[in-house]
Design a binder for these strands. Structure first.
Lengths: 116, 116
DNA sequence: TCAGTATATAACTATTTGCTTATATACTAA
DNA sequence: TTAGTATATAAGCAAATAGTTATATACTGA
């Protein structure tokens, strides 16, 4: 195994705490496969839009995810420049992909306009 | 990279949440190098003994660590049979070893009797 | 400009968390 | 058996967390 770039223990704890929430972990696993916007997460998690925004904001605040606006939507993606990017990607390999959530949306006819 | 044994996303979140605390993450990093007893952790973290016991208990409850009694001491170690053992070990490679804590104890003449 | 849509922020609440002190349990050695 | 040491459990508290509703902001298109 190749040597890993070490992270401060305190910063690592912050990253792991953020990932230690089922909702955020699922979001990250989805983002590992494709960028998502808030409205998708709202449908997937059946959760209020502010709640979703607050989750992505926490991840954005530490640099795990980045955003870019596309028209009226804001698209989130994993930030490959993040100091802990390797760790995050590594972790996400331990959990099954969560793409069924998106497929269920499509099947339910709730395919989101932002992702056409 | 070799394929990883997948863990349920919910169980993974539990593991990461437990690791997402600086105290527990440091404990785990120490345990990656050598078994420890509660009394060592009390000295290292300058924290009450019940607080230390509660931290190790949480990790024991999910199976991350195991204990064995040695005389009047209870020695904790990483549980290599734990479902998420590979993940835990993998994570711990991202943080610097924490052995200086033990060295500081020795330097301060607080070397713990349990570890002779 | 204005209505509609997407997202963010503010304010609040219930739950969880990490600590504390007090006390109980378990082992050792005299 | 008894004192001393190591650890666990109980109870309580302050801070953090994850959700909610209400409202503000930002963009689009008529």
């Amino acid at each position: 195994m190749e040597t890993k770039n070490l992270l401060e223990i305190e910063r690592t704890a912050v990253i792991l705490k953020l990932m230690g929430d089922k909702t955020r972990l699922t979001m990250l696993r989805l983002l590992a496969d494709h960028d998502c916007c808030v409205c998708e997460f709202v449908e997937i998690f059946e959760m209020s839009q502010p709640s979703v925004s607050q989750h992505v904001r926490k991840m954005k605040d530490v640099g795990m995810v980045k955003e870019h606006r596309r028209g009226q939507w804001i698209v989130y993606s994993l930030n490959s420049s993040f100091e802990g990017y390797d760790l995050v990607k590594d972790m996400l390999e331990y959990v099954p992909d969560q793409n069924h959530h998106l497929e269920e949306l499509i099947a339910a006819g709730k395919r989101i306009s932002c992702c056409e």
